[in-house]
Design a protein around this nucleic acid. Structure first.
Length: 508
RNA sequence: GGCCCGUUCGUCUAGGGGUUAGGACGCGUCCCUUUCACGGACGAAACACGGGUUCGAUUCCCGUACGGGCUACCA
């Protein structure tokens, strides 16, 4: 295992779609570890599958990382470092992979295979019919296929000269235990019987993931490979490549993260979910399928809350602390504290996280965030009004963009009155009392919290029972809402008197 | 099917050979509140099952069950 190597981690997504929260978490853990150890964090784009390329995906990944504050110090969209380019398609053009392919072929770790799709399919069918447990291109079956191991040197040369399409496959030993260490799971042993002769170089000249990521991790001097658990089964094949290259002792540490599971039911997180919660950091529009997905940002999440929630999905600091700043996450992160089992992500708790962060914001900060959203609704109020509005409404809200909906009565007089409350508490006999209240309020020369409070107090001491919830309904139309007296004070005498009169008028 | 990985309250998790198995979300009750929240207090709620090892297993080992992942010229 490596020692004294500079800490360098990479996030290496494929631009095949929007980056969902599972990917963001992988990037986050890598970032945290790199930062903790004063290392580098790199963004590499693994675009070796031309058929799955989605326009806009790469930009989306970059924008998402930026919004999340998970910024690479090297890589596509973040400035070139010493190992440019950082896009695998461009690296392929520079011949980086073929160099390694040749080395692998020369040392006997890989071989040419000329089989057509149909031939491989036929082989599989045959094996399935014979009830072979895993019908694969492997140490046994390759003997009956057309490749540089079964064919004579002359034949191979002839096929090559004729420009016959070929792939390069990894020569996996027939029966050999491959043992490797995972930072999260410990030692894992897999028999090479289980591994097929993976394609390393495709017939279009592109490397596959298996080859490309190993080569790039070597070239980019990556110290730790952090990726999802779905890669665990193919890790032995990667070990083999390092081994053939003679780099087994300097290969990166491996950390396979548990998967994030969908909130309801079982299975991996999918792009869309019944919970209604976003699965993506930002709004994502797939131009190929024309599918649109909502993002955390646009839903009104605070990025640090999103990051905090994500960090605690599969990891914990080992104590009861749940709200951690990015700096705290960096100093406390370790792979030892990453869980082994998959985590269902909980929409309710996600909202709670955001609320915790919302509470930390000052009213002024909130006003700044809310003002543009109100402008969209053609609401232009003085800043002091918005600040006070935020102060009153923030405890009711989980999200910035809920402020308007939750506090619409700050800006518009009610047209309907909470039916349940009216039904339960109102009757026509009350009209004189509430009219008297209105008149009394109308006589106030000073309109503030204290003077309003005094008016209500006077009624109470005189034994006249004013129901505060009814006042709330008459002035806001709703059964619940912000601090009532503060609300009355903020809206001003004229508006409140007007609303009270209209409210009383509207009741039977 | 085969292989790999996993399994502590409904969910996220702490813990770890002897604990009243701790916290958080959600839920319930109460307090605070002239209204609504916030907040506070309390409560219900978990070691998948079966064998070992051991004086003692939730913790270690082995099975079983269940869940997940992988099984492409996709990553």
């Amino acid at each position: 295992m490596t020692i004294n190597k500079k800490i360098r981690l990479r996030f290496a997504p494929s631009p095949t779609g929007g980056l969902h929260m599972g990917g963001v978490r992988t990037a986050l853990f890598s970032y945290l570890y790199a930062k903790k150890h004063n290392g580098d964090f790199i963004l590499r784009i693994e675009d070796t599958d031309q058929t799955r390329y989605v326009p806009g995906a790469e930009e989306y990944i970059i924008e998402s990382l930026k919004w999340c504050g998970i910024e690479p110090n090297e890589g596509v969209g973040f400035g070139d470092g010493p190992h440019a380019p950082y896009r695998q398609s461009e690296r392929k053009d520079k011949g980086i992979y073929t160099k390694y392919v040749e080395q692998l072929i020369n040392c006997g770790g890989a071989y040419y295979a000329f089989d057509t799709e149909e031939e491989i399919e036929a082989m599989r069918k045959k094996l399935e019919a014979a009830k072979v447990v895993s019908p694969q291109y492997n140490a046994i079956t390759r003997e009956s296929m057309r490749n540089s191991l079964s064919l004579s040197q002359d034949e191979v040369q002839k096929l090559l000269n004729q420009k016959t399409p070929f792939v390069v496959r990894l020569k996996v030993p027939r029966n050999e235990d491959i043992r490797f260490h995972d930072l999260i799971r410990g030692w894992i042993t897999v028999s090479s019987k289980q591994i097929d002769d993976k394609v390393l170089l495709k017939s279009d000249g592109m490397p596959t993931y298996h080859l490309a990521h190993v080569v790039d991790d070597i070239e980019m001097e990556i110290s730790h490979v952090v990726r999802g658990e779905e890669w665990l089964p193919s890790a032995p094949a990667h070990i083999l490549i390092y081994k053939y290259l003679g780099l087994e002792n300097t290969m990166p540490y491996l950390a396979h993260l548990p998967l994030i599971l969908k909130p309801d039911g079982n299975g991996k997180l999918s792009k869309r979910d019944k919970s209604g919660l976003p699965m993506f950091p930002l709004n994502w529009h797939d131009v190929r399928t024309n599918e649109k997905y909502i993002g955390y940002k646009e839903t009104g999440y605070i990025k640090d809350a999103f990051i905090n929630m994500l960090a605690l999905l599969g990891w914990n600091p080992g104590n009861n602390q749940e709200i951690l700043s990015k700096q705290e996450l960096i100093t406390q992160f370790s792979f030892e504290k990453v869980n082994k089992s998959g985590a269902k992500f909980d929409p309710e708790k996600t909202k709670w996280f955001n609320q915790q962060y919302l509470k930390q914001y000052s009213d002024e900060q909130l006003a700044e965030l809310v003002t543009p959203l109100l402008k969209e609704k053609s609401i232009n109020k003085p800043t002091e009004f918005i600040i006070e509005f935020c102060k009153l409404i923030k405890e009711k809200a989980h999200f910035i963009n809920e402020f308007y909906d939750l506090g619409i009565y700050f800006f518009e007089a009610p047209t309907q009155y909470a039916e349940a409350v009216i039904l339960k508490k109102w009757n026509s006999d009350l009209k004189p009392l509430y009219t008297e209240l209105t008149d009394k309020l109308n006589t106030l020369t000073q309109w503030n919290l204290q003077s309003i409070h005094d008016v209500f107090n006077d009624f109470t001491t005189q034994g006249k029972k004013i129901d505060m919830q009814l006042v709330r309904v008459l002035t806001t139309g709703l059964a619940g809402g912000a601090q009532l007296l503060d609300f009355l004070a903020l809206l001003g005498k004229d508006e409140i008197i007007k609303r009270l009169k209209a409210g009383i008028q509207a009741q039977k």
